[in-house]
Design a protein around this nucleic acid. Sequence first.
DNA 1: TGTATAATTTAGCTATGCCTAAATTAATTT
DNA 2: AAATTAATTTAGGCATAGCTAAATTATACA
Lengths: 223, 223
Amino acid sequence: MLTHAAEDYLKSIYKLQEKGGKVSTGILAAYLNVKPASATGMIKKLKTMKLVSHERYRGVTLTDAGRAIALEIIRHHRLLELYLFKALGVPWDGVHEEAEKLEHVISEDMEARMDEFLGYPTADPHGAPIPDKNGVVIQKEHIPMTDLQSGQSCRVAEVSDTDPALLRHLGNLNLYPGTAFHVKEVAPFEGPFTIDMEGEQVVIGREVAKHIFVDNVQDMDNV
Amino acid sequence: MLTHAAEDYLKSIYKLQEKGGKVSTGILAAYLNVKPASATGMIKKLKTMKLVSHERYRGVTLTDAGRAIALEIIRHHRLLELYLFKALGVPWDGVHEEAEKLEHVISEDMEARMDEFLGYPTADPHGAPIPDKNGVVIQKEHIPMTDLQSGQSCRVAEVSDTDPALLRHLGNLNLYPGTAFHVKEVAPFEGPFTIDMEGEQVVIGREVAKHIFVDNVQDMDNV
DNA sequence: TGTATAATTTAGCTATGCCTAAATTAATTT
DNA sequence: AAATTAATTTAGGCATAGCTAAATTATACA
């Protein structure tokens, strides 16, 4: 069995690898809020366990064994988030923090029971995909909201789960995964978005839009 | 915040204190499966935090602050056991182990949500009392089954929660808290008990009976 | 009362996982 | 190509929490 810290490193390497191949020590350390020297130390340990590949000064990658563990932890995290949300009514801006602690501690049996209770779900409350019990992730195609053009319609697919204040804000605006909206206007010079949700008009700043990902994008000019 | 290990020590001191005043280093160490020297070390730390009182070679006691923390952890543990049993269908011989890990990790919010879901329960699946959120425990009067005489009737009040094999055995016999039975015969020379449960006759050995506690004891000779 | 036994404590070691500061290696600039 | 800058690694330290072995204290017995 691995330590909680080691599991967190593997999970972080997985996530950082998603957006751009090899992961540098510095990026990893920043992501985990530790110093680079500490990351180097853990990387060495993970290497002796054959969970990561690493060449000095060149960055880390997960091995197949490392990725399997990372996905197992991510599965725990996302199942927990959804379970806390649906079964215990924890607000969606609170589930991440709670799941962050529980993910290292639950048994395979509890994982399976939550999975069954939830009807074998494929996404957590923020829209992130839940790997299945064999570690298979179905990664849907997402587009950052900042790429949208005036006149387009789409659906919220996923939002960042880390900042509770942002999540409360998005919740107030009803911008949950699944919510459909239409881009009324994009202000020039990297300005805010004005969107239309069932008649309600809402203005979304760039900084917020960066944390929203959409799918089902359709040009609605001629509709 | 305390470490998980410190919380486990406080919880253990509380439980051992219940059955006999001051707790010796050796008893505490044995209960926690650590060496006496390790217990001495932790006791020192807890003393500097004013969570225990300790005189060298004389044993430990919890301070009010220490007891409050112990009861908080015990509350977490027992609420979790009942929650896992009722909400997720974890069998009663499995809830202890799972709760042992989760008890150190759940938030006050999650504690409150489970409490509400369960309807503010007062006992866990093994019959142990759940302290309320202010740390008040209603300790019901229990009698060890080994004290029963032939001809008496009673109800299972509580069973030990630590040994899964024992719990599976008791479960097979339907000896859950609340189950009523009548003592048909107590074999002489510390022999086994023959009990009657709704017509079914079952023989319970001494070693098993030691782990069963009963209440509502009534002499049924003249009934 | 003195001595043997049992329990407890001290001392010193290990491993994890973090830190800071210094040294090394790589990348960029001139 | 040399020098500066940035990133990474090494070295050494700290806290937690366990361990063993030795020293100490208390208790029980004769």
